[in-house]
Every structure is written in structure tokens, then in C-alpha cells.
């Protein structure tokens, strides 16, 4: 605990990697106006793992999409290393900020092989990586995520299992080796026994490469296991934030309390 606090303190002194300031997203207008994200602010520090935790409709995915520049904020701004991301060149930004998506099925274009899926990653590197270098890097990345390149490299998505696809997405992120990885429900389609393996892999990557990870999830157990800090989101707002252990053990917000009470745990049986 002491070590973790010391680590947190040293992070606080460093410059944040990503700063989200008063981020707001409004869909529709007039009567149909929906405020999906409502004045959200937070920072992510280098090497840190955090979770943006919320139920469906909380605005967590919309927040993630804005951070990834897949959606424009209505108000507020996002700074990466102090620069407004809207002012950066797309490829320059995406070389440093990458994502793993939720659905390992719809994340693959069924017309292209694993090889061409992975080779897309090299566009962000410019053109100075030769074909044979690319091949070697792909094989290495696949090995790191526990996949056999020889067997899988020229397969089509429908020949792969959900777990293999999810690992491939991580391999793709590895090839780009970003400074921040947004992981949107990266294990929702994966069985419990394999889920931990994938999360451990991501945590090791963060530790070994100094990569920051932001999990976007509804799974409190996942967030608690992986993250240094939690941000709890409800109806477009961040209602509670803090170190994972503190938030889970001493929630102060009413919504967080209810959420935690409704999550089945092993130690207690619900009074029903």
C-alpha cells in the first residue's frame, strides 16, 4: 500500500499523459436532446492503469470514442501531452493512442486475413518498415500474445475463436506500441478462465513498456483487479473517483454504493 501511494505521488508530480477537460457530448437537439457525456474531467498519467466504470448508457463508450477521435466533443477539450488532440495530425495521434474493441467478431473485416489485419498497423509507422521486417514483427507480436503465427497468419477471421481474435487485437496494439491503450470491454466475450490470462497480459505490457491503459467496462471485478484508479460514471457524469481499493471498500457516492451492493461477491450472500 505504501509503495502504491509513493508511486501515485510520483505520478502526480509528472505531467499527465492525457487530460480530459469539461468534456461534453450532446446527441440530437431540441426535444430529442440527449446529454451522453456531461462535463467530464480527468487525467491519465504515464504507466497508469485506470478504469472508466459504468453501466450501459452511462456515457463511458462515448467518452472513449471522443478520446479516440472517432467522435467530436460538443464542448470541452482533450489534451495529449499538453496539446489539443483536435489540432494534431490523425496518424501522429493514433500512433500514440490506440484501442482494443469490445466485439472480437465485428472488429474484423471478414474479407481480409490475419496478415492483412495486422499489416494495417504499419500504416501508422510510415513506410520505412520493409515487408520482411513487418513479417518478423507480426510473428513476434503474435508470439507475445500466445498465438502461433505459422498456423494462424493466413487464416480468415471466421476460422478463429473469439479468444484468438481478442488476442490478435492486442497483438495489433503491440505492433503500434502506443503510449495509451483504450480497452473497451476487452474480455466481455471471453470465458472466465481465459479472461484473466488476457488481462494479465495487458497488465504485464503496461508494466514492461510503461504503457497507460484505460479500461472501459461495466465489470467491477475486472476494474478492481486491474486498475490503480477507478472513475465511476453514471448518467454522463463521473460520480466517484479514487484509488481502486478505496472506492470499492469505502464508496462515498450513493450510486457507487448501490452498484457495489448489487454485485455478487463470494464472501457475502445477499439478503433477498
Amino acid at each position: 500500500m505504501v509503495l502504491a501511494n509513493a508511486l501515485n505521488n510520483s505520478k502526480k508530480q509528472r505531467q499527465p499523459l492525457l487530460q480530459v477537460e469539461n468534456l461534453t457530448k450532446v446527441f440530437g437537439s431540441g426535444k430529442n436532446e440527449v446529454i451522453a457525456v456531461d462535463d467530464v474531467s480527468f487525467e491519465i498519467y504515464p504507466g497508469e492503469i485506470i478504469s472508466l466504470l459504468g453501466e450501459s448508457g452511462s456515457g463511458k463508450t462515448t467518452t472513449a470514442r471522443m478520446i479516440l477521435r472517432l467522435s467530436q466533443p460538443t464542448r470541452g477539450r482533450i489534451l495529449f501531452k499538453g496539446k489539443d488532440i483536435q489540432a494534431m495530425k490523425g496518424v501522429d495521434y493514433w500512433r500514440q493512442v490506440q484501442a482494443i474493441f469490445q466485439d472480437p467478431f465485428s472488429s474484423f473485416n471478414s474479407f481480409y486475413s490475419v496478415h492483412s489485419f495486422l499489416s494495417k498497423a504499419f500504416r501508422l509507422k510510415g513506410n520505412h518498415v520493409s515487408k520482411s521486417q513487418q513479417r518478423a514483427m507480426m510473428e513476434e507480436a503474435m508470439k507475445k500474445v500466445g498465438l502461433n503465427a505459422e498456423e494462424l497468419l493466413f487464416k480468415r477471421p471466421h476460422e478463429l475463436s473469439g479468444g484468438q481474435r481478442q488476442r490478435l487485437m492486442i497483438a495489433r496494439a503491440l505492433l503500434i506500441s502506443p503510449e495509451l491503450l483504450i480497452a473497451d470491454e476487452p474480455t466481455s466475450m471471453i470465458d472466465a478462465s481465459s479472461r484473466v490470462g488476457i488481462l494479465n497480459m495487458l497488465m504485464d505490457l503496461s508494466r514492461n513498456l510503461g504503457m497507460s491503459i484505460m479500461f472501459i467496462t461495466h465489470d467491477i471485478g475486472l476494474a478492481y483487479y486491474t486498475s490503480d484508479r477507478l472513475l465511476i460514471m453514471n448518467k454522463g457524469r463521473i460520480v466517484e473517483r479514487g484509488p481502486s481499493v478505496e472506492v470499492v471498500e469505502n464508496p462515498t457516492d450513493e450510486y457507487t454504493r448501490r452498484l457495489l451492493a448489487d454485485v455478487p461477491t463470494l464472501s457475502k450472500r445477499w439478503a433477498l
Binding site: 477521435r69 472517432l70 490523425g90 493514433w94 484501442a99 474493441f101 473485416n109 494495417k120 498497423a121
Partner: peptide
């Protein structure tokens, strides 16, 4: 989305 954040 994945292709877009790959710079397409």
C-alpha cells in the same frame, strides 16, 4: 473504427 484509427 479500427481502420480509421489505423490512419485510413
Amino acid at each position: 473504427d479500427l481502420a480509421r484509427i489505423s490512419g485510413y
